[in-house]
Amino acid sequence: MPIVVQGLSFSYSKGTPFEKRALDNVSLTINDGEFVGIMGHTGSGKSTFIQHLNGLIKVQEGSVEVDGIRLTGAKRPKPDYKKLRATLGMVFQYPEYQLFDDTVIKDVSFGPKNMGYKKEEAEQMAREALTLVGLDPDEVGDKAPFELSGGQKRRAAIAGVIVMKPKILVLDEPTAGLDPYGKEQILNLILRLKAECSPTVIVISHDMDEITRYASRLIIFGEGRVAFDMPMTELFKHGRELEELGLETPTAVRMANALKERGVDLGEGIVNMDIFTAAVLKKLKERGVEVAEFNGIDWFGERNKKPVSSADVFGEGV
């Protein structure tokens, strides 16, 4: 079932001199199977918004409905938070900071144990989740979280969220603080999670080039409101307004625009580098230049090197 948000408003420290309006009458619907990118400048309300989705922030005004569970400002009926949190998994920024237990397997099974699963069941689920994020449960399971490398820690923390097989996965800047290769791997991991366990994915990001490669829909927040929620090709015609919100159009769009000014029209629908490259190659072909077949950009030269399977995606490089 979709996520339906209606007239959601929120202020921090309500009723004190510190009162700060974070959300202002936000309404939107996110359908099953979407890969939604949420963008916005610092303080635009995007984090506050996603924290509403699984009831971490109590609704002040308006309503949120996630998979049939309704959250409103009213005290009763009390929503089933446990079910909600098993349905909607939330990965916070720098999730590795939330690791606390003495072994990785125990930490990952924290969620299922809270949901009432027995120890053995929870550990079995944890092993599956670790495999899914590309960690070997036999190898890292009994290690302390602090012994892992940075990228491994992040994957372990993500495992701690997806272990409950949430239908909806929400991630707040999942690639923050990683190098380009690590970013690529985390984003590929998210795509795989979307295919294998969580069909709906919502990602907060601040990198236009990155998010346009993955997301099927972009929602732009500005000053607590939904500033833009439209197809990407339409959205990037509003370059000036995006700039006012502190955002840039993707490099591909800017390059296509620059080419257009110089008399080369690549046509509509260019949102990322893959589409841009394909369009340029097509244009060259039209003009009689011989070009090789193009299947998307192989950023790290590894497409032909490794088979893409659940267990063996990650090298030690992250």
Binding site: R85, M90, Q98, F110, G111, M115
Partner: peptide
């Protein structure tokens, strides 16, 4: 702030 964040993260994993 940090406590707030981590509390939220653990609550999101079902901590009561």
């Amino acid at each position: 702030e940090e406590t707030d964040k981590i509390m939220m993260a653990q609550k999101a994993r079902g901590a009561d």
